[in-house]
Design a protein around this nucleic acid. Structure first.
Lengths: 246, 246
DNA sequence: TCAAAAGTGTTCGGTTTACACCCATGG
DNA sequence: CCATGGGTGTAAACCGAACACTTTTGA
């Protein structure tokens, strides 16, 4: 681009772009994947659910804007929100995606452990956790963004240590397994899951305290913390749909 | 975002954003990975190499702009350029990434078979294919973009059929293997590579013509075409660096 | 004493790896 | 006739899915 910037290029010469961030925030509530949505209070799409988000301010990066919006929309303290996993998805730039003006939106996926019900972070419209799949048609192109985010998260569970981002600082292997099961929508073999997780170096590390805890009934489970690794070797592959040709 | 758009929001109220695309265009020239770069003719970074790119026009999407710039910068016909693989990488939006103004850039990775030397696609500065790794320090944040693009392409070779995008319509398995070797910088076992590729359904399909061809010396190789698949099952994993702990 | 969840062991079968070996062609 | 690259075969090592079994808790 920069190579052929017209020398006297004036960015105000034609209608400017607005740049926003849109957030697909996922969490696990009682073993179901939930997504954070806000109800639109204005036209267009008044009354429809939409992804939270907002404008990128003149002196901040999209990453910074996304982190700021994440804190505002979840109603969490900035310190807590700073710990949530946040990653850029892709940018949506169809000219007519917003009928009011030219808006280019950088989409993000965020995820965290069971988060509290969002308390009005300044905006009037209500914000809620909805079980993923029950949200119906969203405003603008947010259906596509949300689907892309879900695909991305599901794929990254396979070959990264992302799953720990859904868990509290200390967690059991059962909780970790339920992350995979909720996002993928499949049941995993418990013994094999345990072995795979423990053999992948850097994925989890035992919590050093006298680690025991109960999740209701059953034998108390050992507690673990996230290991330092980000990549998962070997990967934890999603069980493949049974092919008819096999 | 849209939920809390101020009702009377005027996008001209503060300094607008410019939105651009930057392209990391890869090709294979005599078994080496090359990148398309343009020499900057103006400040800042006059004389430095940079990624090709340009502004997103008021009525086009970033994808459209990237495709248009790809055709212009490579000097290929629009028809030919339309066949190149193009995919969005991510968006770079640090406030000071361009000292002249606020520029948000959507980065793309593009790749194609051995392409001709770029003929001046309208811009004065020269454009060239440089062997990847020999390009030195690029202008702006283009070092980071190029590195991200290379990482992405290398990773996608593992679990997608992307490698065929580096090949002409009909290609031999040796040519396909050299794509992997050039991008990954490793040598692959020829017999095992062949079996993996042929057993992955939809990756390649035999060219029906009486397929024979010579690549110089040696036995003529059968010709293949890209199969319809985009995902690669099972994946073709990069040989892992030998760990000291093994 | 039973249900539920954690944790361990074992078997079986397919896949991957590291080779050896033959084939066809140009110099 | 040799070097070069294409193509086939194979045995050992490895890995993963499936499932039996024990342990420890709450009800």
């Amino acid at each position: 681009m920069h190579a052929q910037v017209p020398d006297g290029y004036d960015p105000r010469a034609f209608e400017p772009f607005a740049v926003t961030v849109d957030l697909a925030v996922f969490t696990l509530r009682d073993d179901r994947l939930h997504v954070l949505l806000v109800r639109r209070g204005e036209e267009p799409h008044r009354g429809r659910w939409a992804l939270p988000g907002g404008f990128v301010l003149p002196r901040e990066s999209a990453d910074t804007a996304a982190r700021r919006e994440l804190a505002e929309e979840t109603g969490l303290s900035a310190g807590t929100a700073a710990h949530l996993h946040l990653e850029q998805l892709r940018t949506y730039s169809e000219p007519d995606r917003d009928p009011r003006m030219r808006v280019v939106s950088v989409a993000y996926a965020a995820l965290g452990p069971d988060l509290p019900e969002p308390r009005g972070g300044g905006d009037a419209a209500d914000a809620r956790w909805l079980p993923y799949g029950t949200q119906g048609a969203l405003a603008f192109d947010h259906d596509a963004i949300l689907a892309d985010a879900h695909d991305r998260v599901g794929a990254k569970l396979e070959y990264t240590c992302l799953a720990t981002a859904f868990c509290p600082p200390e967690f059991t292997l059962g909780e970790l397994r339920r992350v995979y099961e909720a996002v993928w929508g499949v049941a995993l073999d418990r013994p094999n899951f345990r072995r795979k997780v423990l053999s992948a170096q850097g994925f989890v590390r035992p919590a050093q305290g006298p680690p025991r805890l109960t999740g209701g009934r059953g034998k108390p489970a050992a507690l673990y913390r996230a290991g330092g690794a980000t990549a998962l070797h070997p990967p934890l592959l999603r069980p493949e749909r049974r092919e008819t040709t096999t």
